[in-house]
Simulated assay, not measured.
Amino acid sequence: MNHPSSPIEPLQWPDSAARQLTVDVMRLDKLHPIVSGNKWFKLKEHLALANPNKPIITFGGPWSNHLVATAYAAKQHGLTAIGFIRGEEPAHTSATLQEAAGYGMQLEFISRQRYRQKEDPEFIQELSVRFPGAYIIPEGGGGLPGITGSEAILRTANTTAYTHIGCAIGTGTTFLGLWRASTPQQTIVGIPVLKGFDAAPLSHPRTLFLPQYHFGGYARHPQTLLDFMNGFYRDTGVPTDIVYTGKLFFAILQSIRQELFPTHSRLLIIHSGGLQGNRSLPPGALTFGK
């Protein structure tokens, strides 16, 4: 995967203009139709470490953006990919898993209890015996290679003029990469999408967390969030997803209204892609895209 350049677009929000703020969005969702957004950056270092003659193994749920991105990227690199899926195999697999399988990923369904053990030494040992020499990519493309890859996000464009850089937080991989690549004058703002977020592992100087915008937990999407996403697209033309970016932009807008950011701040919001996850919604729930 070649190094991309990231388009940065202005967001014309009346709330930000009234408070003399500059708010731009880095459209990582535009970089690639399949390896969407930050997935490109998190995967590239992992794939460089994989043995070309051995499989790669990774993990995800039935609507995982990571699984689709990994399946496609593995195929492009001539690698065999195996995905361990959270939950028993359903009668009808999700569109996401069908797409991943279409790119050649072998799907293995395991119970939720077993899935929670995926990082235990015993589970890892079982995988190493069953798949000798396989390279394991953590769920979501985490780990040090994912963090290192995410550092390149801020190097795809000139981002040094921004005072604040905001992103959604799942595993924290992208957040840490952004922090490591930022300047001493920049604050990295993280919006956790999981309930019960523990900020301690990610807390560093120049970090700010807004943990109150998870909307009930991971992938929870009450009507309030859907209404915001539809209105945001109508006003800006920027599509968002129910897991990450919808909550991200909602949190940033509320924080602007609450005057969290000093006057004349320059905000860059990282659109991390992941729009395919919206396919889990019933038809008509969103007025745009997939």
Rank of each mutant, 00 (worst) to 15 (best):
T236L: 06
Q212F: 13
V23D: 02
G37V: 08
S16R: 04
T183H: 13
A168G: 11
L11P: 04
Q223N: 09
E88R: 12
K195Y: 14
L28W: 03
G196L: 10
F209M: 13
I85G: 00
G277V: 02
Q254L: 09
G196Q: 07
S150I: 01
A134L: 03
T22G: 07
P90F: 13
I34F: 11
H164N: 12
P282I: 05
P283C: 05
L208A: 11
I34P: 09
L144F: 05
I269Q: 01
V23F: 04
G140C: 08
T240V: 12
T174E: 06
H92G: 07
T183S: 14
N278D: 03
W63L: 04
V189W: 11
P222I: 01
L286A: 02
K44N: 13
M26T: 03
F175I: 07
D24V: 03
Y72Q: 06
R86I: 01
A95G: 14
M1P: 05
R19H: 13
A251Q: 07
V35P: 00
K118W: 05
T70K: 00
H92A: 14
A161L: 09
G104Y: 01
N65H: 02
N51R: 12
R114H: 10
G142Q: 00
I82L: 05
A95E: 13
F84R: 00
I34V: 15
D227Y: 03
S280T: 11
R27Y: 07
S182Q: 11
L176Y: 02
E126T: 12
W63P: 02
G104T: 03
R19K: 12
A69L: 03
L260G: 00
Q258M: 10
M26R: 05
F232V: 04
T187V: 15
R130Y: 08
A95R: 13
P222C: 02
H271D: 09
Y103A: 06
V193T: 09
W40D: 05
V193E: 10
L154P: 12
G216V: 06
A168H: 03
A91D: 14
L281C: 11
E89Q: 15
I191H: 06
G196P: 06
Y115Q: 01
G61T: 02
A74L: 00
L176K: 12
H164Q: 11
P184F: 10
L210N: 03
P52G: 07
I169T: 01
A285I: 04
G246C: 07
Q76T: 13
P121N: 12
F215T: 00
V35N: 01
N51S: 15
L28H: 06
A168M: 07
E108C: 14
E45A: 12
L225I: 01
D24Y: 09
R19M: 11
P282L: 10
F209K: 12
D29N: 11
Y72L: 03
R180H: 14
T174H: 08
